[in-house]
Nucleic acid binder design. Structure first.
Lengths: 192, 192
DNA sequence: CATAACCTAACGAACGTTCGTCAGGCAAGT
DNA sequence: ACTTGCCTGACGAACGTTCGTTAGGTTATG
């Protein structure tokens, strides 16, 4: 499907150059068509962008759900650490994660409301997923402390810190070092 | 000074709309001059941008150094938690912090090298500052564990997580909740 | 079966607008 | 008198978008 090719190229450039820094001619050239032809598939730049955004959201959410469903039976240490590792791997393979991160932080202002709605929705779903798992662990007495909400927020903080490191430097050694440090302290903070 | 006004307006728009999304006419209008008059003060858009960048770096570093010098004598808990609170306050008051964060994450690609150089330099200085303090605390035996490097990286992770929350939602309650959660776990992870 | 009507995807050309930038002139402060 | 700051005017380039048109495939009609 040609429109998928267009979205794929659009994802790439939106991620690297942002919304304003990406031109339709750039995307079209990447696909091998003229920029006018994009209008056969999308109403315009905004329509294309929002379409890419929705795909990225779906991708992000499904990978979350998938991993959590697979791992929810294993012990907390293995699962929580494993998820961080998995995320690092995905971040380099799946381009939509970086796109999502960028647009969540710094959305094009004229689309702020539409983007905010999506990011909020995703965040709520992700946190609900986590909170439930932390809740079962606390009930089972395998974790030290506190309420599920606190653990969820702290853990998602660790996730964000790693993601930022991935965007910021993209230096594998640095990322590994950061992961090790953050995990060490976090795990010591929540384990018995 | 008029060039300071220009830089101030530029900072504002660069922060909100990014490099590509900001036009010189926008900046000029904000100052009350024509866009061509900007060229009386700066060589061009890039020159203005890099000038703003250097100011922001200086601001960020000096506020770091200032706080650390004042607080280095107090106990770890008070200082580390206090710094997070201070950062939240500054983030809303000092615009250059948000600017710095954005450009560190998503720089305009054609200025990547110049920006990377500055961000790297700042990061090294900040981490050196932290690591030294953690080192003295460890030597004094007031902290539980590990090497200073690990604590530094983990703590800067907490900082980043809070900053991201500030950018992401800008909801004071949400930020406070995140701070409380991250701090609780982090402190439990490093204290005796 | 043939043909007419329609749909899709792509095109070249052009639209009006905005972009960053350069050149030259005019007024004020030293 | 000379520099400095801001102005007007203009520039080529690029932007997103619209237009009319073409080629090819699908569907419906006679």
């Amino acid at each position: 499907m040609k429109s998928d090719e267009i979205k794929k190229a659009a994802l790439k450039y939106f991620t690297i150059h942002g919304y304003e820094g990406t031109s339709l001619s750039q995307i079209a050239e990447d696909v091998g068509i003229k920029k006018q032809s994009i209008y056969s598939h999308f109403k315009g730049k905004d329509d294309l962008f929002l379409s890419v955004l929705k795909d990225a959201k779906e991708m992000e959410l499904s990978s979350y759900v998938e991993y959590f469903n697979i791992m929810k039976k294993s012990d907390p240490e293995k699962m929580l650490y494993g998820f961080l590792e998995e995320m690092i791997k995905m971040f380099q393979e799946v381009e939509s994660l970086k796109f999502w991160l960028r647009m969540g932080f710094f959305p094009p202002t004229h689309l702020y409301n539409e983007i905010q709605k999506e990011t909020d929705d995703l965040q709520v779903q992700q946190e609900a997923l986590m909170e439930k798992i932390f809740g079962t662990w606390i009930s089972a007495g395998v974790l030290n402390s506190g309420d599920a909400r606190t653990l969820t927020l702290a853990y998602s903080g660790v996730i964000v810190a790693i993601m930022v490191e991935l965007v910021y430097a993209d230096n594998p050694d640095r990322v590994a070092e950061k992961l090790a440090a953050s995990w060490t302290i976090f795990w010591r903070g929540i384990s018995k």
